[in-house]
Amino acid sequence: MSPPTSLKILLVDDEVVRAAMVEEALTHEGHRVICRLTSPASLNEMVARHAPDVVIIDMESPDRDTLDSMALLNRENPRPVVFFADQHDPETLQAALKVGVSAYVVDGLVPGRVKPIIEVAIARFDAFQSLRRELDKTRNQLSERKRIERAKGLLMKHQNTDEEQAYRMLRKLAMDRGQRIAQVADNVIDILERLENGL
C-alpha cells in the first residue's frame, strides 16, 4: 500500500526523454506514475483502465481534446477528470501553460495535493526545454547552412521557383512560425522528402 500522499499519475507525452525526467521526479516524490505515448482515440480506455488521480499531458498533444471532453461526455465515468484551472492560483496555471504542461485532475481532489505535482512537471518541462535548446544549438551550427541549401533546392523543384524566391519562402515560413530558418528548413526537407518517397 502506498503512503496516503501518494497519487496515481498518468503521464501522456511523446517526448520520451522529457517523460522520463518527469516520471523520475514524481516517483521520487512517492507517486505512482504510468507513462504512455499518445495514440489516437485510446485515451478513454487508458483513463478507464488506470483510473489515475492526475493526468499530465503535453499541451500540444492532439489527444488533449479527447481528455478535455471526457468529464462532459462520459457522465457515467466514476472518475471524471477536469482541467486543472484553479482560479485561486492563476500563476501556477500560467507557468504551466507557458512551458506546455496541461494537467487534468479527478474532480474533487484537493488542489493543495495536486499543486506540488504540477510544479514538479513544470520544472521538468522547463529543464527539458533548456536542455534541448542547448543540444540543438551545438548540433545545428555545423550543418545549418547545408540544410538550408537542401530545403531551398527542394522548394525550387516542387514549387517551381528560383533560388531567391525559395529563400524568401523559407524566411516567410520562419517568420510565420516564429522559428529560425534552419528549423523551417528541417520541416520543409521532412515534408518534401516524404512527398518524393510517395508517403
Partner: peptide
C-alpha cells in the same frame, strides 16, 4: 493542434 489548447491559451 486542439481546440482546448487554443481556448486555454
Amino acid at each position: 493542434n486542439t481546440w482546448s489548447a487554443l481556448r486555454d491559451k
